[in-house]
């Protein structure tokens, strides 16, 4: 499920601007786009909750109060209990950590591999570029969940394999984006100048190309975080997700779905957690894109 696609992200080519004024831009952007600000807010709160889960959670995520199994939300258990009598609030909090980890691992893994491939292909050009891009074409030919499912089935169900599968599905987006950026940057004066000064290719890439190609990649990463959480939930639903009793949100929805008519809170609360977190990342991504697009800024 491409939350953002190469086409939509390459249609602008923002160049890195001077640092000065960026802080004011953020304030202005927040005022202009309250949704983006809301997204940033959600993401920040979510990250804080994830980090502070052990302090905030009233119980361990695996402790079973079997006698209170499926009890509705109460004062003692504000979000109710699940089918094994585990505190849903605590599981949601610990689950936030897992989702954050899934998102980050996928973004870092897919982002690093993809960007390395993309920049190299764009910078070196020629046959290497051609081969690399054909390989990304092959990956783009699959709908993401179907490819991820096939990979997860092959590797066997586990949280690690889920992350690997999603990263494999997402790296080509970064490759295309960074290649497109590199192709433009390569012809620009400051890169030409650096080359004339005798800097090595690696140095040029690290010092000049990468920093300037970063903006759309960051936007993509934000969308990708949300996408990763959603694909992980989808894989859990099929049965290729985190192992019990791991409080992964997707697993919680998927395992709780039999209770939707009888104890609605069991699947609904984790579903809402997913909704909130993914919306947050998507809003943030939208906002960042506006912010980093010089043409949007002028208005």
């Amino acid at each position: 499920m491409p939350a953002s696609t190469p086409a939509s992200a390459t249609d602008r080519l923002p160049l890195k601007r001077a640092r000065r004024g960026r802080g004011r831009d953020i304030v202005r952007a927040a005022r202009r786009s309250p949704l983006a600000a809301a997204g940033a807010g959600v993401v920040i709160v979510y990250a804080l909750l994830a980090v502070a889960a052990p302090i905030l959670a009233p119980h361990a995520p695996v402790t079973q109060f079997l006698e209170h199994r499926l009890d509705p939300p109460s004062r003692a258990f504000p979000l109710g209990l699940d089918q094994l009598g585990r505190d849903i609030l605590s599981r949601i909090l610990y689950g936030a950590r897992l989702s954050l980890i899934i998102g980050l691992v996928v973004v870092v893994l897919g982002g690093v591999v993809g960007t390395a491939v993309g920049i190299t292909a764009g910078f070196v050009g020629g046959r290497l570029d051609n081969v690399m891009m054909r390989i990304t074409d092959v990956f783009f030919a699959f709908p993401s969940l179907i490819l991820a499912m096939a990979i997860a089935a092959a590797l066997g169900p586990s949280l690690t394999n889920t992350m690997v599968a999603i990263a494999i599905v997402t790296w080509p987006v970064y490759a295309r984006l960074s290649r497109a950026q590199t192709l433009v940057l390569r012809r620009l004066e400051f890169v030409e100048a650096a080359r004339a000064m005798g800097l090595t290719d690696v140095r040029i890439i690290v010092r000049h190309v990468l920093p300037n190609a970063l903006s759309p990649l960051i936007v993509q990463a934000s969308f990708n975080m949300g996408e990763a959480i959603l694909i992980a939930a989808g894989l859990s639903f099929i049965g290729f997700g985190a192992q019990p009793p791991t409080p992964e949100w997707g697993v919680m929805v998927s395992e709780g779905r039999d209770y939707i008519t009888t104890q609605w809170w069991v699947p609904t609360i984790p579903a809402l957690a997913i909704l909130l977190a993914v919306t947050g990342f998507n809003l943030l991504g939208d906002g960042l894109r506006d912010l980093m697009d010089p043409r949007m800024r002028r208005r």
């Binding site: 939350a3 949704l35 949300g226 959603l230 939930a233 989808g234 639903f237 997707g250 929805v253 998927s254 779905r257 939707i260 699947p267 609904t268 579903a271 997913i274 909704l275 909130l276 977190a277 993914v278 919306t279 998507n282 809003l283 939208d286």
Partner: peptide, 19 residues
Amino acid sequence: SRLGALAGASLPVFWLGLV
């Protein structure tokens, strides 16, 4: 509309279907 659209894109499909 943007918020609605984004929320629509952020829901686990299988939960939405059941609901």
